[in-house]
Every structure is written in structure tokens, then in C-alpha cells.
């Protein structure tokens, strides 16, 4: 599903974000990306959803080679992915159902199919009763659930989450994390960047730790670099 092969990323201002990063995420896996701020977690995610292109090496996501993506192919790739951020990135003047439906509208989905699909994912994230509410009327945890519902509504193969619990209290964190686990249990690859080591520790999911733009630990591979 996701393959990084000797990937390096240097920004135009000269900052080196990633150095010789290689890993492979097969179907159905849940992967944590951990490390301090500036370690390279967000850069890896940005490469996955084609916000950035690699400076060297090769990134393959869901059959697309990121460095060779044309402007027309980027939306196609993103429709196969779901992306969730720490700051939710919801449209404030749209209701919950409109925020979620919006992700379907942009794909050209048939208008009559949108309400049902939206309600299905809102039920999945436990927010069907808040469909008509605006983001400002929701708690942080609820807003993040809306963002997850928006990411899920296109039935993505991969869900990319950049510090999704970073702005949430402990209870909301548990709730959102549980939701991501359920999504993964349904077969979707989840790649989640986080600082929250408590969350990582007890799950047994694959963990890739980054430091200074390099992978320093990967629980998913053996000493020879082969997937366990």
C-alpha cells in the first residue's frame, strides 16, 4: 500500500526533513510514527498524501508514484486517502453533515446518494445526532470525529492522521483512538503520527520512530530489515 524507498526530503529553504527513509506498509496495517517535533513525522505524511514530493528516492502510495504525479492525478490519489489533522480543518460555516458531504461533492458523487453515505459515516463515528450542528457547537473530540467521518466517507484505502489527538483531553483521545482502531479493523491502513507514547505502548501496533529525519527504530521489521 505504501512504500518508501531511500527517500530524502530537503525543503527549498535548505532544511533537511528526511534522510534515506525506507519502509513498507502492507494492507490492513496500523502504523504509529513517533518522534520529537521536527523528527520528520509530518513530512512522511505530507509525502503520502502528495502535499510534498520527495527530493530523492521513491514514494509509492496505492499504486501511484508520488514524484511522478501530475496535477490531475493528485485529486484522484487523495480521494483514495483519508487525512486527519490535529487542528481538525473543518469548514466553520458548514454543518457537520455538510462538512462530511463536501468530501463527496468534490468527487462528483451523485447528489441523491450523498445524504445516506454521510449519515452512515456519522453513525459510525457516533455523531448522527449532531448532523445539523456547526463545528463551533462541538467539543474538540467531536470535531475530530467529524474530521474522521469526512476522511472515511470516500471509503479510503489509507487513513493518514497527523497528531489527531494532540488537541484533545484524555477521554476524547481514547475515544478517537478507539475509532481509528475500528476503522483499521475494517481493513483500512492507518498511519498515525503521535507524541503520545502511552497510546503507542499498550497497543502492540507497528511503531516507526524518527529522529533527525531518519528512522531509528521500526518494530515491524527484523534485524535484516524484513517485515516481521
Amino acid at each position: 500500500m505504501i512504500r518508501f524507498n531511500h527517500v530524502g526530503k530537503v525543503f527549498t529553504n535548505g532544511v533537511v526533513a528526511l534522510k534515506d527513509v525506507s519502509f513498507h506498509v502492507p494492507k490492513g496495517q496500523f502504523v504509529f510514527l513517533t518522534g520529537h517535533s521536527g523528527a520528520g513525522k509530518s513530512s512522511i505524511l505530507a509525502l503520502i498524501f502528495a502535499e510534498q514530493k520527495p527530493s530523492e528516492g521513491e514514494v509509492r502510495v496505492s499504486g501511484y508514484q508520488i514524484s511522478k504525479l501530475t496535477a490531475k492525478e493528485i485529486p484522484r490519489l487523495r480521494r483514495r486517502l483519508g487525512v486527519v489533522f490535529q487542528d481538525f480543518r473543518l469548514l466553520e460555516y458548514r454543518t457537520v453533515e455538510e462538512n462530511v458531504g463536501f468530501a463527496l461533492e468534490v468527487t462528483g458523487a451523485r447528489p441523491e446518494t450523498i445524504p445516506n453515505r454521510v449519515m452512515r459515516v456519522l453513525t459510525q463515528v457516533g455523531l448522527a445526532s449532531k448532523a445539523r450542528a456547526y463545528p463551533r457547537e462541538l467539543s474538540g473530540g467531536e470535531q475530530q470525529r467529524v474530521a474522521i467521518a469526512r476522511a472515511l466517507v470516500n471509503d479510503p484505502h489509507i487513513l493518514v492522521a497527523d497528531e489527531p489527538t494532540g488537541n484533545l483531553d484524555e477521554r476524547a483521545t481514547r475515544g478517537v483512538f478507539q475509532l481509528l482502531r475500528e476503522i483499521n479493523a475494517g481493513g483500512t491502513v492507518v498511519v498515525m503520527a503521535t507524541h503520545n507514547m502511552e497510546l503507542v505502548r499498550d497497543t502492540g501496533y507497528r511503531t516507526i520512530e524518527l529522529r533527525g529525519g531518519r528512522i531509528v527504530y521500526d518494530s515491524g521489521v527484523d534485524e535484516n530489515g524484513e517485515l516481521r
Binding site: 490531475k72 480543518r89 468534490v106
Partner: peptide, 16 residues
Amino acid sequence: AREIAIMRLVGATNNY
């Protein structure tokens, strides 16, 4: 600008 960025994020084409 934020709205445009979100639109792109969820896979909107430039024409949309």
C-alpha cells in the same frame, strides 16, 4: 485560502 486548502485535501480538482 484555508477553505481552498481543505478542498484540495479532500480531493477537489482545480476546476471544482
